[in-house]
Design a protein around this nucleic acid. Structure first.
Lengths: 121, 121
DNA sequence: TTATTATATGCAAAAAGATAGATATGCAAT
DNA sequence: ATTGCATATCTATCTTTTTGCATATAATAA
């Protein structure tokens, strides 16, 4: 390990060392989500979410993929994925509240809409 | 996981997300070291080292212990220790260069002095 | 085309963090 | 006590990050 190594690692760690970004990553490590979904989930203004996503994207931690009008983001860094397992604990598949999809009534993306309808009923 | 959890975790991560602190922790996770040793190792002024150590100490990551004139620091947080194993990789016992003791001729603490003598010979 | 929805970008103000220097404390040997 | 060494603290300054807001772009719908 030399200075450059520590700098590289700490730069990557810095990206995770933020409550909202950590939360975003906790959602994305389960499954890809669109911006509107994260917006509803975190309760923060859209530009704010986009800004955090840009940071994560530029750090190579996540990747975006356009689907229709929506942009879905997914985790794309194996190293960070491993870190998250240790920091946040392994993903609990039985934890349906994990990405809180059932509580999201504000998100109308194609992925969320069916749930929204379900809840409205 | 709620907002407070993410804030707590990210605050702890933030402490690691710094090249010099990460390096200090990489040294301390192997064995306790005194300030003068870290000073020689990092090649930074003593007040700077003390400042970073204070940050780590106040975050509960390390603990100090006075031995004669020197203050030795050791890792005291099991969670962080586990994180470091993943981020920096497990400690390689055969890696004698790990804490670079053999290269430290500037440190004269009781722990280093014998080695210094050895090198001078 | 025009309107609408989803997301991105740019910019300025505010907050936080880093760096450096000077000084203080505290132990230990003389 | 006094000198010397190791470490800590304080203060000021400089830089970076964070945040909030206004606006731009791009795709779709009417």
């Amino acid at each position: 390990m030399n200075t450059a190594d520590y700098e590289l690692l700490s730069a990557k760690l810095k990206v995770l060392a933020h409550p909202e970004r950590l939360r975003i990553l906790d959602v994305l490590r389960r499954e890809p989500e669109c911006v509107c979904h994260l917006e509803a989930l975190l309760g923060k203004p859209q530009p704010y979410i986009s800004q955090q996503l840009r940071l994560l994207r530029e750090a190579g931690v996540i990747t975006d993929e356009k689907q229709g009008q929506n942009v879905f983001y997914h985790l794309s860094d194996a190293e960070v994925s491993a870190w998250l397992d240790v920091v946040l604990g392994p993903i609990d598949q039985s934890d349906f509240g994990a990405n809180q999809r059932e509580f999201i009534v504000a998100c109308t993306c194609p992925k969320c809409a069916p749930t929204t309808v379900l809840l409205a009923a």
